[in-house]
């Protein structure tokens, strides 16, 4: 038992180290290539960090907003019957249609892109959390009520842990969509960020740097998934009700 645990730990650690190693090597080699092609790799790093910061900021706003909305909506059947069809229709409205409106309100900067990302990210988190709240076994809800779980304590010790697996799943989808969206949004809004960088390199006709940048972005997203979301997804199985 103890040895199999140690072996598992070793495998996990090796796997993680390998991921980091591959990631680091890729970054170094790509940056070197870019450097050799005289592109400003500092600008690329800055743009990538700006985009990551925007996705993170949007996520930090979206997550509590989506989870809170679901908890409130599902408190009463009448609220749920009223809001769920509205949310269902709203999610199918094409998000990019709002971009000109947002630019006119917030200007061509981070607030526009973050607001835009929130609209994109919120749907998967809302709908997976909504489905998660439905699949919590009725007996668990009854146990929480019997043993006097109420208010903030209920939220901390019952609701959020019960929803953890669906929140993680929704977050993974949300992050994926956010990366897809941010490239498009920054291409259009166009001041800085990885999308803007890709746009500029494409416009300049430097296909080599353009390809390398897209590859770098893919590796970056893959590594974030490998190091953050997959371990969280694995951990969330412990929270799943049978």
């Amino acid at each position: 038992m103890r040895y199999s645990h140690a072996l598992r730990k070793y495998h996990n650690q090796t796997h993680n180290l390998l991921s980091i190693g591959v990631f680091a090597l890729s970054i170094i080699s790509i940056f070197s290539l870019i450097f050799l092609s005289r592109s400003n790799y500092l600008v690329l790093t800055y743009d990538l960090l700006i985009s990551t910061w925007r996705v993170m900021l949007a996520y930090l706003i979206t997550l509590p907003l989506a989870v809170f909305a679901v908890i409130v909506i599902t408190r009463r059947k009448s609220l749920e019957d009223f809001f769920v069809p509205i949310l269902d229709v709203s999610q199918s409205i094409p998000t990019f249609a709002f971009l000109p409106l947002m630019i006119s309100v917030y200007g061509r900067g981070t607030p526009t892109i973050v607001a835009f990302l929130i609209i994109e990210m919120i749907w998967p988190i809302i709908f997976t959390t909504l489905s998660g709240i439905k699949t919590v076994r009725e007996e668990l809800n009854e146990a929480a009520a019997i043993f006097q779980a109420k208010g903030v304590k209920k939220l901390i010790y019952f609701t959020l842990p019960a929803l953890f697996p669906s929140i993680v799943t929704g977050s993974i989808v949300g992050w994926g969509e956010a990366w897809e969206t941010i490239v498009g949004a920054e291409l259009i809004v166009g001041k800085n960020g990885i999308g803007a960088f890709i746009g500029k390199t494409y416009d300049s006709g430097n296909t080599f740097v353009f390809t390398i940048t897209v590859l770098l972005l893919l590796i970056f997203i893959f590594t974030l998934n490998r190091l953050i979301w997959l371990p969280l997804l694995k951990r969330s199985t412990q929270f799943q009700t049978e």
């Binding site: 007996e139 006097q148 412990q238």
Partner: peptide
């Protein structure tokens, strides 16, 4: 409960202590 209704994210101690914690 018939199917135990234990909270899977809590260990044995935390499950048993749950009512006291809530009170």
């Amino acid at each position: 409960f018939q199917n135990f209704a234990l909270f899977p994210w809590l260990n044995v101690f935390e499950n048993v202590a749950f009512p006291l914690k809530m009170l």
